[in-house]
Nucleic acid binder design. Structure first.
Ligand SMILES: [Mn+2]
Ligand SMILES: [Mn+2]
Ligand SMILES: [Mn+2]
Ligand SMILES: [Mn+2]
Lengths: 219, 219
DNA sequence: TAATATTTTTAGACTTGTCTAAAAATATTA
DNA sequence: TAATATTTTTAGACAAGTCTAAAAATATTA
């Protein structure tokens, strides 16, 4: 239906649309590690195919159709990641690159059966929600640990940085999805966050606290 | 490592090498539904990369490396087909096209884990042997039903024609992998083969008998 | 073996997706 | 608001993979 390049552009535009309205050429170029001129070329192609709204110099947004395609790719990506972790025992820091390839396998029947085979998982290994076959999924309200106050807490539910180094670090600290943490202190000097988890105390840097997301406890 | 096009050419050359020695440009063109001129172009590229032995006008053969690559693609194809049938409940006539895409997922670690997850299957859903991770597999001696004599028989173990129509026909006649058949008669007029299977008798055409393979009973 | 037929290669063109360098438009700032 | 900086687009080129048409090599057959 669509080429691999088109799919990657649509996915990038979708993700960039989440924080902010229209997406700029340079943002897309950065996200895809390509050049602005290449992006412009592709924008004309995608606009031609009615997958994006594009007026030059004005940035782009996805059409209804474009968004459906993008969400479908994300669905495939996350289901394959779940498969790799839950069925093939890969670690959560090992699956992203493989899923980048697998998300382009075209059959929707295949992905629906995979979904069923795994019992319709709601989240991928990184806590990201998996859209259903109609493209519906609720974006849960996640907050970086950095934004919550002392003596408040929540359940680790997602990450902002999906890089292997970051995921490996979290794994080592046992800061994994589902764990409950409480902020015990924020050190004034450098904003290091002191956490309580289980019966241990541990410290994480401001940067880590910015990239680790929790579902905030109802108080 | 290799492009999708290169992988498809190597696989085609490998399969064509099985019956006969050096493979001709036209054979490859036919197998890949492309033109002879395109094949020549690619042959230069593959020869450059030391994946085939090529002297112009003389046909080609795979190098050691080329053969390893080809067998690895076939391994992936067959393991994915097995997965689709055994885990996702697809029928044997539905999986080939999906596997044509999936065989290009690059990770060998992934395919080795998939292999392990499924318990190292020896054959794909069509009876074709699955190479192990070192590329080793025994080609079993299969014979078309058309070649065996009256009152002899064997176990259905493979097909020569992998088309959906043929597989669907076999399914309907319950002529599936693992069934034991005996040739009871060969009708002189048109070489229709009369089979006994379980306690039933059925007739298959010469063409079907040519494309349905058995492991011959030791007598 | 010479004429003819077939196969294979070459030449030149096209598409997709990319790039660099330069031009045009927009945004910033003095 | 005018000058400057930044962003985006255009122009032209390139690699991969494909095609058609024509030329060259090989195979067939009279
Ligand atoms: Mn991922
Ligand atoms: Mn993920
Ligand atoms: Mn197949
Ligand atoms: Mn098969």
């Amino acid at each position: 239906m669509h080429t691999l390049a088109e799919e990657n552009y649509l996915k990038a535009i979708y993700k960039l649309s989440l924080q902010g309205n229209s997406v700029s050429t340079n943002q897309i170029a950065t996200a895809l590690a390509t050049k602005a001129s290449s992006v412009t070329d592709m924008m004309r192609k995608l606009a031609e195919k009615m997958l994006i709204n594009y007026t030059r110099y004005q940035g782009v947004s996805l059409t209804e159709t474009g968004q459906k395609v993008a969400i479908n790719i994300i669905r495939k990506h996350r289901l394959w990641e779940y498969f790799l972790v839950e069925k093939l025992n890969f670690k959560w820091d090992e699956v992203h690159e493989m899923a980048e390839e697998m998300e382009h396998i075209s059959s929707n029947e295949l992905i629906d059966r995979l979904d069923e085979f795994m019992g319709h998982p709601a989240r991928d290994p990184h806590g990201d929600p998996i859209p259903d076959s109609n493209g519906n999924f609720k974006k849960i309200d996640l907050k970086p640990i950095a934004t919550i106050a002392v003596n408040e807490g929540g359940v680790i539910s997602g990450v902002r940085d999906h890089s292997a180094v970051f995921l490996q670090y979290l794994e080592k600290q046992q800061l994994t999805i589902g764990k409950h943490i409480t902020v015990k202190d924020i050190i004034a000097y450098d904003n290091t966050v002191v956490l309580q988890m289980d019966n241990n105390t541990l410290q994480i840097s401001r940067e880590v606290a910015n990239n680790l997301l929790i579902t905030y406890d109802k108080i």
